[in-house]
Design a protein around this nucleic acid. Structure first.
Lengths: 147, 147
DNA sequence: ACAGAAAAAGATAAATTTATCTTAAATTTG
DNA sequence: CAAATTTAAGATAAATTTATCTTTTTCTGT
């Protein structure tokens, strides 16, 4: 559904949010270790997120990546759009360029509903919300991450 | 959501179903022209569908691909499983290997619902059903295909 | 039997995604 | 200021998906 790059991005941002209170910058090594993603590839993705303003960063010793309060409010939808684009969010289920409400493909209606469901889910979940939900739950990420 | 290969496969099978009544075998040239897919790539995909019993074929002049009555009853779910595998149907939304009901990732619940919705849609639609629904509608495929 | 038509199979190539490596720039600390 | 650390940026490589090409096999019609 989502590309690896996008999944890594989301996981990384949730991790950053979970450490937001510490007021500490996290380096790539820590991020990729905790999030279980290849280090140099993760660096590239963090770079992209940084360039687009989804995360903040600082170079040099004690530098690294971190989230500002506002950035932690980012929805999954925004991240998906930024990393994977909108194809998965609004494209035809059968890949037909000319598919539309007026000229629907055979699965247009039903697929639109599924897609809408997916969109809603992404839009209704913020990074900070997911990070907080992990506290006190037995979430997978909680075991991988060190909260 | 689905790979190109899978979309081509579904479109091709709908096309075959739409010509099923003619009791005619359709060659690759016709299929890829009507379905708007690259010819040699489509040939590969049809080969795979044939090898797995989703379509029938006959070599030689007047040969080509066709559907038997039972094959037209194939659901989209079966095709997706055969071409794309089950990852998109049951994999974790964030790509975590250890995600499960017992140890859910932060979006586990909501993502499971979306996925289930997608699964249901695929399972409730047969190739023949979609082909028939196109008759008398203004479906996109109907304009591309020659029914 | 023969010629032509078509799928099957296998090898190859292009494009994209995923991943890595190397160098440069910035920042902190001693 | 110098050294160490870290992101940024750019070049390269591997893997996968997408696409093409070539040869072989099978079948039909004459």
């Amino acid at each position: 559904m989502l590309s690896n790059a996008c999944k890594y991005a989301i996981r990384a941002m949730i991790y950053l949010a979970s450490r937001q209170s510490e007021d500490v910058k996290v380096n790539i090594r820590d991020i990729s270790a905790e999030v279980d993603s290849p280090e140099p590839f993760t660096a590239k993705i963090m770079q992209a997120l940084s360039k687009q303003g989804f995360v903040s960063s600082l170079k040099g010793p004690t530098g690294g990546f971190y989230l500002e309060t506002k950035q932690a409010e980012t929805t999954l939808l925004e991240i998906v759009k930024a990393i994977d684009g909108t194809q998965v969010l609004d494209g035809c289920g059968l890949g037909l360029k000319t598919c539309s409400d007026a000229h629907p493909c055979p699965i247009h209606q039903e697929y639109s509903h599924v897609r809408q469901h997916f969109n809603d889910m992404l839009e209704n979940n913020t990074i900070i919300g997911l990070a907080q939900a992990m506290h006190g739950s037995n979430s997978v990420l909680k075991n991988i991450l060190t909260i």
